[in-house]
Design a protein around this nucleic acid. Structure first.
Lengths: 151, 151
DNA sequence: ATGTAATACTTAGCTTACGAGGCTTTTGCA
DNA sequence: TGCAAAAGCCTCGTAAGCTAAGTATTACAT
């Protein structure tokens, strides 16, 4: 490992981890500005996006799809329930499970909020070709897999 | 906007923002496992990485380079100082400024910790060509710029 | 020289996230 | 059948991040 190589790792701009972090914050903040007037926080959005496509899943499954731990999910889902976006129902066949269901109000939000995330994504990807964007998504899916797979 | 296009935005895997978030967590967690035995948290690491290259900067400049707000920086730098990694000195020429300087101990950590972040990056980028990795870094720098620029 | 604006850091309060460990229910097997 | 293990959710403590508003110092225009 030469000194030059080491320097590359010290300059954050060369690190995918650093870029992931600042982009995560930037995406969140941009989205928040658009959706908060509708009473939805960025954290709540992450759950809603999954629920619009997969309503009636268990809490564990929802957390898995959102990409957070169950400990974090408990708080997030409580916040959704408090805001009147979801209902929590104990599964009758397996009383350990809690089924998360969207309220009618939360379902009506889909049509309003989706264009906003479309806008944020389009703004972010301005000046980037479809081919490049596809590479980015594929590579980031792979780095995540590489870092989280066993051993 | 067709229904098919909308679905793409609902499936998290197609969203750069989602991928950025899960990768940020994955990078942090992987790095944490390696550096915590040396008494360094992932949060502290972010500051140290900058300081190893730019020792003696002001608090504001350090925060800018780390990519966080100054409010967040106050806590992080306090934690570094409590752990004995940095010293905070008021600038004699401008008493508003606080200069952050590494302690000798923190400087010795560089040689131990850099190989660890190298390892995490190499593991993350396994099976990805240099060309693809370059595209990812360039695109993520651009999306960040696009989302944070004035307009 | 002085009052206003800008700069640099801090505080308070909130959100989102994690790990470790605990509780209840279900499952599987001796 | 009965009991240990697994599954599913929750609590607690802590970290890291943000915005908004506050304090102290310096710069600048008049």
């Amino acid at each position: 490992m030469t000194k030059k190589n080491l320097i590359e790792y010290l300059e954050p701009i060369h690190s995918v981890g650093y870029l992931a972090r600042i982009n995560f914050r930037a995406f969140s903040k941009a989205l928040e500005k658009l959706i908060e007037p509708h009473g939805v926080s960025a954290g709540q959005w992450r759950f809603l996006r999954v629920l619009w496509e997969h309503d009636g899943v268990t809490q564990r499954e929802l957390c898995r799809k959102v990409g957070i731990t169950e400990a974090t999910g408990v708080k997030g889902i409580a916040s959704l329930a408090a805001a009147g976006f979801v209902k929590r129902t104990i599964d009758t066949r397996d009383k350990r499970k809690i089924i998360i269901t969207l309220t009618p109000h939360a379902r009506t939000l889909e049509a309003k909020l989706i264009p906003m995330v479309v806008e944020v994504n389009e703004r972010a990807l301005e000046g980037i070709t479809k081919k490049e964007a596809d590479i980015v998504r594929r590579v980031l899916a792979k780095t995540y897999f590489n870092l989280t797979k066993e051993n």
